[in-house]
Structures are given as structure tokens and as C-alpha cells.
């Protein structure tokens, strides 16, 4: 009994000694402040580079330093938390669910298209609900190819988005205060095939593990090995994508919209003249002058 009493006492003393040391450590920055740390973190020297001289270097250092910034707008009756984008005027309203499951996004990011000035934003828009391999699919016979939605968090097959119900409802509702959200479904469409009685995406967990391994090991690879591995990673995709009119046409669409849960009205919208004409007549499609009353020289 006496032994246990002494043991408890010793443990108690040890705890107090540890607390005393922690308290001294905790109080140090509170007494001596944090001055200078903020300025130092913006230096490229931390990145092994030279002093910041150009705007590009400044942006690079800033991007490395910053996490995704958010802003809060308190309206009293409603709190809006949204991503902060420097220089943006219009409110965004909500965060996008990041795609954690795509092997392409791991390197190419969420906004990968930048070559074609005319349509790059549209292509990036599609990248929020279509997996890269949906359009950039490598050539095969395509006979048993199927499409499913996958969860952006874990890559698993999920049911068709419930957000489509809101979108369909919005076509029936006259109320101006009903605003469905387009494109933020928490899921993406991706191709796959039945294998052994179960559906499997062409990019699955095995491919993701391969990419993760490549990213972690690439510093140790030689230039030829890197090229070889990149070729293997990209073997199921093609740089020649499906073109717009293969989905946006009135007769034969590349994607099975109805099977993927797209409501009837939305399918009509995607395949009728509003979108199709815009694609076909891009250069000639001008806003008529009657939409700008009193300004005869506006519009063409």
C-alpha cells in the first residue's frame, strides 16, 4: 500500500515537472512575440532561390506560402463563407468539393485547360463534373464501355446526383428565388467496364497508388525512367479528346445523359440549339442590336 502511495506521489511530481517545462515553453512566444516571422516567410530564400525580383517570383512565393484563403461576409441574417480570390468582385458563395480521387488532378490540377483561348474556360468548366478520361479516352472499340459517377473524395461509384432534382424543379418553378447549383455535384462522370461481375473505372485505386508512388519517387528517377513511367501512367488516355458536338447534338450523344441521371429538360437544354448553335456558330454568333435599346452601333 505504501509503495503505491509513493508511486502515485512520484508520478504526480513528474507530471508537475513536465507541466512546469511546458508552461515555460508556452509562455516564451507570448512574452517575446512573433515579430519578423511573417516577413521572413515570404522570402524565396526559404525555397532555396534568390531574392524576389519579378512579379512571377512574388506570386510563386505567395502561392507556396498560402493555403487556400477564405473570406467571411456576415449579413446579420446569414453568414457567407467562400473562397477568396484576389480582385474578384462577384461573390462565389460556397466551396467546391475537391477531386481527391482523380489520378490526373494530382498533377494537372482542377483547372488544366489553357491552350485554346476560345474554349479553355468551357473545358475547365466541364472538368468539374467530367473525369479527364471521359473525354480524353484512349481509342478502343468502346463496345462495352459504361459511364458512372464517382465520389470525388474516395473514387467509389455513387448514385446519380440528387442536385438534378433541384435543376429539374427549377424549370417548373417560376420563383426567382430558386437557384439550383450547376456543376457542384460532389461527383464526376468517368468511364469504366464490367470486370468479373462488378463495374470498375478505367482509373482505379491501383492506378492512383501507381501515381502516388511516382510522385514520391520521381526525384530519384533518371530522365529516361521518368519519361517511361509517364508513358505508362498515360496509357489509358489520349491527347485527342472527344469534341463538343459529340455530346451537344440533337440525335446521337456520346454520353448517356438519361442513364447518368440528367433530367429530361436538362438533356433537352444540353442538346438543343442554345448550346449546339453556340458551339457551331462561335465566330458568327453575335448579340443582336435589339437587345441593346437605343444604341444602334452596339452589337453586330
Amino acid at each position: 500500500m505504501r509503495f503505491f502511495k509513493r508511486l502515485i506521489f512520484k508520478l504526480y511530481v513528474l507530471f508537475l515537472m513536465a507541466f512546469t517545462i511546458w508552461y515555460g515553453y508556452f509562455m516564451f512566444p507570448l512574452i517575446f512575440g512573433f515579430e519578423g516571422k511573417e516577413a521572413a516567410s515570404t522570402s524565396l530564400l526559404e525555397l532555396g532561390g534568390a531574392e524576389i525580383e519579378t512579379e512571377e517570383e512574388r506570386m510563386f512565393a505567395k502561392l507556396i506560402k498560402e493555403q487556400t484563403q477564405t473570406s467571411r461576409t456576415d449579413l446579420g441574417y446569414k453568414l457567407i463563407e467562400q473562397p477568396y480570390i484576389e480582385g474578384r468582385f462577384h461573390h462565389i458563395g460556397f466551396e467546391l468539393q475537391e477531386d481527391q480521387a482523380s489520378i490526373c488532378v494530382r498533377c494537372h490540377g482542377n483547372v488544366p485547360h489553357d491552350e485554346s483561348r476560345e474554349i479553355r474556360s468551357f473545358l475547365n468548366m466541364h472538368a468539374f463534373y467530367l473525369a479527364c478520361e471521359t473525354c480524353h479516352v484512349a481509342e478502343d472499340d468502346g463496345t462495352d464501355r459504361q459511364y458512372r459517377w464517382y465520389n470525388k473524395d474516395n473514387g467509389e461509384v455513387v448514385p446519380n446526383p440528387v442536385a438534378f432534382r433541384d435543376i429539374e424543379e427549377s424549370y417548373r418553378t417560376e420563383s426567382a428565388s430558386f437557384y439550383p447549383t450547376y456543376g457542384n455535384y460532389g461527383a464526376k462522370i468517368s468511364p469504366g467496364k464490367e470486370q468479373g461481375g462488378a463495374f470498375a473505372f478505367i482509373h482505379g485505386t491501383k492506378e492512383m497508388a501507381f501515381v502516388e508512388r511516382f510522385i514520391s519517387e520521381q526525384d530519384r528517377l533518371g530522365p529516361e525512367q521518368k519519361s517511361q513511367m509517364k508513358q505508362v501512367i498515360h496509357r489509358k488516355v489520349s491527347s485527342d479528346p472527344i469534341v463538343c458536338k459529340e455530346c451537344h447534338n440533337e440525335t446521337d450523344q456520346y454520353l448517356p445523359y438519361a442513364e447518368l441521371g440528367y433530367p429530361r429538360t436538362r438533356v433537352g437544354e444540353l442538346t438543343d440549339t442554345s448550346v449546339v448553335n453556340m458551339i457551331l456558330k462561335y465566330k458568327e454568333f453575335y448579340i443582336p442590336s435589339f437587345l441593346s435599346p437605343g444604341t444602334n452601333d452596339e452589337g453586330k
Partner: peptide
């Protein structure tokens, strides 16, 4: 569409989404 966006020539992220609400 929430994803209507691009990276501009100066490397800045440009989002063209309009939250109608």
C-alpha cells in the same frame, strides 16, 4: 456553372461563375 474558370497569362486564377442568388 461553378467551374467556368481558367488560369490567365499572368498565372492568376480567374473564376467566371456568377452566384445568381
Amino acid at each position: 456553372h461553378r467551374g467556368l474558370s481558367r488560369i490567365d497569362e499572368n498565372g492568376k486564377f480567374r473564376l467566371f461563375y456568377l452566384n445568381q442568388e
